[in-house]
Design a protein around this nucleic acid. Sequence first.
DNA 1: CCGTGACGAGGCACCGTGTCTCGTCGGTAA
DNA 2: TTACCGACGAGACACGGTGCCTCGTCACGG
Lengths: 192, 192
Amino acid sequence: MLAPDPARRSQESWRAILDAAFAILDEEGYQAVTMSRIAARAGVGRQTLYRWWPSKAAVVFEAFLDKVNTGPFPEEGASFPERLRAHVHGFLALYVDGSGGHRLRELIGAAQTDPELARALSEQWFEPRRAPVRQALLDAQRAGDVRADVDPDTALDLVFAPLHYRLLVSGEPVDAAYVDTVVDLCLAALAS
Amino acid sequence: MLAPDPARRSQESWRAILDAAFAILDEEGYQAVTMSRIAARAGVGRQTLYRWWPSKAAVVFEAFLDKVNTGPFPEEGASFPERLRAHVHGFLALYVDGSGGHRLRELIGAAQTDPELARALSEQWFEPRRAPVRQALLDAQRAGDVRADVDPDTALDLVFAPLHYRLLVSGEPVDAAYVDTVVDLCLAALAS
DNA sequence: CCGTGACGAGGCACCGTGTCTCGTCGGTAA
DNA sequence: TTACCGACGAGACACGGTGCCTCGTCACGG
């Protein structure tokens, strides 16, 4: 997401910019974030932002990752239903309760007209979260605990999609009861 | 989505504005649409747009509905699996093959920072499409064809969400094979 | 026949973007 | 120590989109 040599960047300015960008995002939303406001709040020249990031979306996404991209990811060893449920509840905590996590919705919205941001979101946010669940599913398929005649990524969609659908499309609340029901239904669909 | 008396509107200007807005949307995407360009292409004063619509999003959405909101909706009488599959394939045809339907993705994106647009989308686009499927599901639950211990709207999400997830989030292709698999999995999850 | 109100057209202030130019300052090499 | 180099903060600038306002025109209805 950045072209020149990052080693040349002033660490103080870099820190101040990410903090300022995330603060404005968290307090007032994605629309309220502008390059000028980030620079002013960070006590930084605007040219510094344009030097290291190609767009507002790039700055905000890096700030978002810097603050929200937290673990811990659920541990190994448990059964597939337990691992699946733990991961989904981790998602829920991040999106609904987590500081700033609810702003992901606006970032996904911006990505609909920004292919670069869409790619960054896919690679640096979604895929790292799908990967461990995919691994758990493949383990369960090999062990015969779930049916093996379904494409793993389609099965993953079945679990991940409803959360994001409510988040982005229907606006209905996403809570523990909802995701538990979704997990139950998915497990029923995948029963061998 | 409009405040003054629509009867006073010039029908010619109204038609020209919707045509121009949809043409720009279809040809160049949501970002390329501006109030100035709509007015210029429609041969209309910009004040006319601001008189009848509160924002660019409102004009574009009305133009989108005007062009894309087509039937026919699948007929009654068939079995629940058949009705479900028909509706989902209708969605697919509208989103992927339909003229301009793929621009819905950008409208949903804009709705993430535009509560008014989000409400309009929910009421005038999504709910009219969920309603017949909900009815089919309720019929099937009453007839004992699918389990009745699941909230209908949660069950609906299970079918609708994966399409929109791929459209908005993962970017993976949505085709007939995918939606057929999703329908199969949902039917398995809901089997009584 | 005259008033009302929407119309097309154009002007205006405001804001955000992205580029450019200053003068300054710290780190590096001669 | 001194001279250089490049990033830095700050500000000016052109450009484009928004939303409001004001013209003069024109069709409709009382």
